[in-house]
Structures are given as C-alpha cells and as structure tokens.
Design a protein around this nucleic acid. Structure first.
Lengths: 239, 239
DNA sequence: CGTTAATTTGACGGGAATCAAGGGGAGTGG
DNA sequence: CCACTCCCCTTGATTCCCGTCAAATTAACG
C-alpha cells in the first residue's frame, strides 16, 4: 500500500519531478516551513484509497474532491465534498479511512503527513490548528449524521444547497461540480430522488435551474425552513 | 450558559462539595496532574446541553450516556453511546455541539477542559492523545454515516449488536442499558423497526432474548454477514 | 397488586427506491 | 455547421421497505 501511494504521487506530474514551487507558498495552518507540491488529478481519478497508508495530506487548490466509503455491493456513502481551500486526507491513524477521488479535474497541494506531525511536535499552535481541523470534520460529520438519520429527502436537498451556497460563497448562484449521483450518495438518497426534489423546488419558485449544474436560489428563506434546522440548542429554549 | 453549566456540576452531589478523591486517580491520557471529580447523574438527566459552554470533559465510570442532536419537531439523532471508560464532551470549539444525557444512573469523572488544554500546551504526548481522541470520534462518525446513509434496517441492527458486543467485551451476552427508542434514534430507525429486526433475528436463531435488554448472540457469523461490512478497502481488491 | 412504561406484534399507508423511458448538452467527427 | 454519441438528467410507473397508527403483552416499580 505504501508503494501504491508513492506511485500515485508521481503519476500525474508531467515531468518526472514534481513541480514544487516556492511561488505557491500556500501553507497549512500558516506555517512557512511547509511547502506543498502541486499535483493534478483528472476527473474521477483516485487520489487515495480506503486502507492505504496515509502518507500525505492534501489541500484543494482548484476543482473538487469527494471522500467516501463503499460497501462490497457498491453502495456508496460520500462523507464530504472538498472544495478549494479545504484540507483533507489528514488522519490520526496510519491509514486512510475513506477513499478520495477528483470530482472534476482537480489541483491540490500535497504535504507530507510526517513533516506536518513533526512540526506539530515543535509548535503548539500547529498542533492546535491540526486538532481544530479534525474537530471541524467531526462537527460536520455530526451534523451530517442528523441529516442522514432523521431528515426527509426535501430537507436533505435543501440543506445541501445551503451548504454549497455558503461554502462556495456563491451568493445564490451555485455552480455544482458533482453529478446527481454524487449528491445522492452524499445525502443518502438516489439520484432520482435528488432530481425530483430539485424539480419540486424549481416548480415552487424556490430556485431556478439554468442548467443542471447551475442553481440560482430565489427564496433562501424557503430553503432555510426546510434544511437549515441545524439542531436546536436546548440551551436557547430553557435559559 | 456558563451559569447553567456551573449549576449542573453542583446539582447532583449529595453534599454541596463534590467528592473528589485521590483514590480514583483515573487519569485522562495517563496524566497524573489531572484528577477528576466524581459526579453522578440520574436516569435521563441532562449532563450538558447543545450550545452550552464546553467547560468540562467527562469520562464514564459506570452507567451509560447518549449524545444527540434534536430537530425542532423532536426528531432525534443519537451520535454515540458512551460506556464505562469512554471520554466524551471534549470539543474544539467553546461550546458543545450535542446534548448529553445519562441513559441509566451514571457515574462520571469530570475534568476541567481548560486544565486539560493547559496540560496539552506543555506536553506533546497529551496533545497527541487528545487529538487521537477526536480522531477516534471522527472514525466512528464516518462509519456511522455509511450506516445511516446506505444500510438497511437489518444491517443497522446487526451492526449495532456487533458494536455493543465488542465495546462491552460481553462475549455474546449483551446487557443493553438503552431502550428500543434510543437504539432507533441511534440507527436512524423507529423503535418498532428495531424491535421487529430483533424479533426476526431471534426467529432465525441468530440470537436469544432472555429479557428485552439482554441479548445473547448465537450465531455471530450471521450478524457479521449482515452488519459488519465496514467499508471494503479498495486497496485490498486492486493491489 | 395496581399503575405505568417498555416492548412486541399487527395492519396499513406513504415516501423513497427501483425500473424504465425519454430529453438535453457537450463533445466529436464528418 | 450539423449529425451522432454518450452521459447526465428528468420524469413516469410501480414496488417495497419502513414509518405510522393501534392494540396487546410484558416488565418495572412503588
């Protein structure tokens, strides 16, 4: 598995040496010692596989990534979409717990996990930033469990649109990189159900669909009442 | 909210002062500086609420705890059950993202989050242990998303039984602290569906139900084929 | 022993999955 | 520029798993 990771890393760099440049000194956690190697992946190309050695950490520069788990019969659960600026693939264990694929042609910065951990050993701020990173993933997972376990199809789709709108800072004009199947596998639905929910929202006038991948939100309030019920803090209602 | 947390801490200790003893020097992450205060909660008592200040971290000594999120109409998703030995309530943010309640009468050790973080600042090992803690929660959440999004009722119940059997090291003789409703809210099902699934497994001879809360596994292999499909590593099938 | 909550079981209905065509857009090649 | 193709998406028809509603049974507890 170690070998496979190493192969993956080299596969897509046109010259055999990775084009690591100081120019894209985009740093994880604002730490100047760590410069990532730029890598590109074609649409649907695997970035890493479930069970592989977690040798690298990734930061999306352009494109989009899905991380997912599979059952043996092909059922898939996408745990998260990773958009430009997002860091993914950072594990506490030595191996990846999900697989990662490029949704569209994607550019990432690749960092050595070992180097990161080493830095964290010397800097409390880095250690804390990494731990905050894991915690953010956990927060998202907890919200998503509520969605998967307890929300209706309409609520899931509305929540998805709100999430994407916010994360892409596309104020109302969402440009989706993923297919309906991807969305379904993220929301625990079939692609048909996702499509129907979108059509319904369109018919209601809540949104417009200039193209299938382009969604403009007309009435955000309507989406909010459906999807954005992010767990009502008990504290607010009782004190 | 700060006030509420402080009140909670004092509420259940029969003498006004908490009985913090050196005797139960059960330490988080094996660190002798930190001694927790022993606290008890009655069945169904709230330990903390969603949105409250995350002032304390908890370790279960006896009993069981559920952490969950609610929708405004009462739908509930239990994110995890916490059994003796488990640590919960540790957040990266300043506030709790879920609520916590005692499932049965429960004893916990309470630690100051601030003290823990302070320790982590001075000790890399502690910092790493805390981050491993968060990562374990994340792993569980990722597995659980697959269950909630993609598994059938029978598969969910089988997976639940296997999880409990393993975590309680009750080799085949599971003593459940939680109700069918709790199980349902954990698995994204109704209590009736959980009950039916259990009855079905009983009729098959896969398990016995001496009482509703006591389950003895007769054929673990049967449960495994149903539930324990914990995401097939792509790596195993392709290299 | 009575009261209440938890669980089981049955009957039924509905929401989403499945099965199945039918469009529509983007890219390709003529 | 247009025809062709492929894939994605939409929409319809039908199925079915699980949720809902309801009642009976069992367990828990004072």
């Amino acid at each position: 598995m170690f070998v496979q990771s190493a192969a993956t890393i080299r596969k897509n760099s046109r010259p055999p040496g990775v084009d690591s440049t100081v120019s894209d000194t985009l740093l994880i956690a604002g730490c100047p010692q760590l410069v990532g190697s730029r890598m590109t992946y074609a649409q649907d190309e695997e970035i890493y596989g479930d069970g592989e050695e977690a040798e690298f950490v990734y930061k999306v520069v352009a494109g989009a990534v899905r991380t997912y788990k599979l059952l043996s019969d092909g059922r898939r659960q996408i745990g998260a979409f990773h958009l430009p600026g997002d860091i993914f693939g950072f594990e506490s264990n030595s191996t990846h717990r999900l697989s990662a694929e490029a949704i569209s042609d994607t550019t990432v910065l690749v960092f050595s996990r070992r180097a990161l951990e080493c830095l964290a050993t010397h800097s409390i701020e880095i250690a804390r930033a990494l731990w905050a990173l894991a915690a953010r993933s956990l927060d998202h997972a907890e919200d998503h469990m509520l969605l998967l376990g307890r929300k209706t199809a309409a609520e899931r789709v509305a929540a998805f649109l709100l999430e994407m709108d916010e994360r892409m800072q596309s104020t109302g004009a969402i440009r989706l990189p993923m297919t309906r199947r991807d969305i379904g596998d993220y929301l625990g639905l079939t692609l048909e159900t996702v499509s129907r929910a979108l059509s319904h929202l369109k018919a209601e006038g809540t949104l417009e669909l200039p193209t299938a991948r382009q969604i403009t939100v007309q009435r955000r309030s309507k989406l909010r009442t459906l999807g954005s019920e992010d767990a009502f803090p008990r504290a607010l209602s009782c004190c």
